[in-house]
């Protein structure tokens, strides 16, 4: 059986366009297999980023038929193959070439966030930190993140409004939540979240949650609780009054 793929091709700095490739497909194939096949047989200089091919490294993010997905986890039998399948790069980031985007902004953002700062081991812990499984469940959910940046790709604050300099996006709100909710962490990130990272820009449309390949409840479990903490600190009238009195 043959299928047709319209793949975004562009040279560095140049304009791009979708190009059509038809290739033989077989049972069980995913989009990344088709891209590799086209690369090996028709267009060796077709650029795509990938690594593990098992949904674990988060390298092969793309927009397939307009949907942000990992190419390695999108089976062809989940797509309508009577129509050409479009494969495009993530649109919230500058394109380097073809399907490869410049995601370096994400790495710079992380560097600007406060790192993990654990408390000391307590005497009653006998030399090693004690944490109950139920207290780390939530943090472990967040730590499943594979940094595919699909959540950043669909976040309208970044994608449509280009607020990359003011807003850190769902990936790093999740990262902040993971540190804030870590049972051992002693630092405080609420001021940064409010003033520097502008958590308020997020209006919880949950687009990030919908595209997360790890099915992390980014909005409900990470962003909303962080927003609540920010509200409690900065907008609670009682606390505000207390602050005015105590200075």
């Amino acid at each position: 059986m043959k299928a047709t793929f319209q793949i975004w091709r562009s040279e560095p700095g140049g304009a791009g366009a979708l190009e059509s490739y038809t290739t033989e497909i077989s049972e069980g194939m995913v989009v990344l297999d088709a891209v590799h096949k086209i690369q090996a047989e028709q267009s060796p200089d077709l650029a795509c980023r990938w690594n593990c091919k098992a949904g674990k490294c988060g390298s092969c993010s793309a927009e397939i038929n307009g949907q942000p997905k990992l190419m390695c986890m999108t089976r062809l039998n989940s797509l309508d193959l009577t129509q050409p399948v479009t494969v495009e790069p993530m649109r919230a980031f500058p394109i380097i070439k073809d399907l490869v985007t410049d995601v370096s902004w994400n790495f710079r953002v992380k560097k600007g966030l406060k790192k993990f700062k654990p408390r000391a081991v307590r005497p009653e812990e006998h030399g090693t930190w004690r944490m109950a499984q139920r207290d780390v469940d939530r943090v472990q959910e967040f730590r499943k993140c594979i940094e595919c940046f699909l959540c950043q790709d669909v976040c309208h604050v970044l994608r449509d409004h280009g607020k990359h300099e003011e807003f850190i996006g769902p990936r790093f709100l999740l990262y902040s939540a993971q540190l804030e909710m870590h049972p051992l962490d002693t630092d405080d990130r609420l001021a940064d979240l409010k003033h520097k990272n502008n958590i308020g820009y997020c209006n919880i449309t949950k687009c990030c949650t919908k595209v997360c390949p790890e099915h992390i409840h980014i909005t409900d479990n990470a962003i909303i609780p962080l927003k609540e903490r920010v509200v409690d600190r900065y907008y609670d009238p009682v606390t505000k009054l207390l602050r005015m009195i105590t200075g």
Partner: peptide, 14 residues
Amino acid sequence: GIDGHREYNAGWHT
């Protein structure tokens, strides 16, 4: 041998 430009050229990497 390999065709195309040098940028992100998977064939050349191979």
